[in-house]
Computed example of a mutant assay.
Amino acid sequence: MATKLMKALDVAFGHPRGKVGELGGRVMAKVNAKVEAHAVDVLGPTADETVLVVGPGPGVGLRLVGERAFKAIGVDPSEVMLDKARERCADLIVASRVELREGTAARTGQEPSSVDAVVSVDNLQVWDNRPAAFHELFRVLKPGGRLIVSAHRWALGVSEYDLIKEAEAAGFTEVRTSLQQHGGMIPPAVQLFANVPA
């Protein structure tokens, strides 16, 4: 029974696909909206910056970034989520403010030192290889770039200390975490902040 439940949750939220993935996307858009908005506010994208959004899911945070940054680039391994994000950000895509493509945290498809900031909300727990992902995100960030990763604490499966060490091993500096309470039914989120040396 537990295995069936885990598979169903993975199809809905972990690696969304099919009709169940579409339903999962609608749930994510509602449940994660405050977390997405907070992460984007803390990131503070500016009108001259290019921001990589890792795992934008249904596109709530991607849209917020696209409205503020010069360009938001979303990479997600789920075609279902890419479709939902395209729908949500259609006008920004037409205006060349948002770009979407298939990819993962460990394989973004970005050129080295090509983005000013990276933000990822509620998908760290499904990164296949966290150390490789941190190295990739360090690679694509410009000198002086910044990273924010937010994930529901209950879903992490790893200590905050381990996350900090993995980010530092990739070259990030000023790595720190904080616990963000969003109230109501939304579980607390661990946020990791890191910088690339200028």
Rank of each mutant, 00 (worst) to 15 (best):
M1Q: 12
T3M: 13
K7E: 15
L9H: 07
H15Q: 14
H15R: 12
V20L: 15
L23K: 13
G24Y: 05
G25L: 00
G25V: 06
R26S: 14
R26A: 14
A29G: 11
V31Q: 09
N32A: 14
A33Q: 10
E36M: 15
E36G: 15
A39I: 11
A39D: 04
D41P: 12
L43A: 06
P45T: 07
P45K: 08
D48V: 13
T50M: 12
V53Y: 02
V53T: 07
P56R: 02
G57I: 09
P58W: 02
G59Q: 02
V60P: 11
V60W: 10
V65S: 04
R68L: 11
F70C: 13
A72L: 09
A72T: 03
I73P: 00
G74A: 01
G74H: 01
V75L: 01
D76C: 04
E79L: 09
E79V: 00
E79W: 06
V80W: 03
V80C: 12
D83N: 14
R88K: 11
A90W: 09
L92K: 05
I93D: 10
V94P: 06
E99K: 13
E99T: 07
E99D: 11
G103H: 08
A105I: 04
T108S: 03
G109C: 04
Q110D: 12
P112C: 06
S114V: 00
A117I: 08
A117G: 08
S120V: 05
V121R: 02
V121E: 10
V126T: 05
V126W: 09
N129D: 15
P131Y: 02
F134E: 06
R139K: 11
P143N: 00
G145Q: 00
R146G: 02
V149G: 04
S150T: 13
A151W: 00
A151Q: 12
V158C: 04
D162I: 10
I164H: 02
K165V: 11
T173D: 10
T173F: 08
E174I: 10
V175I: 05
R176P: 03
T177G: 07
S178K: 14
G183D: 04
G184L: 11
M185D: 15
I186F: 10
P187I: 06
P188Y: 01
A189G: 10
A189S: 13
L192W: 01
L192V: 09
F193A: 14
V196I: 11
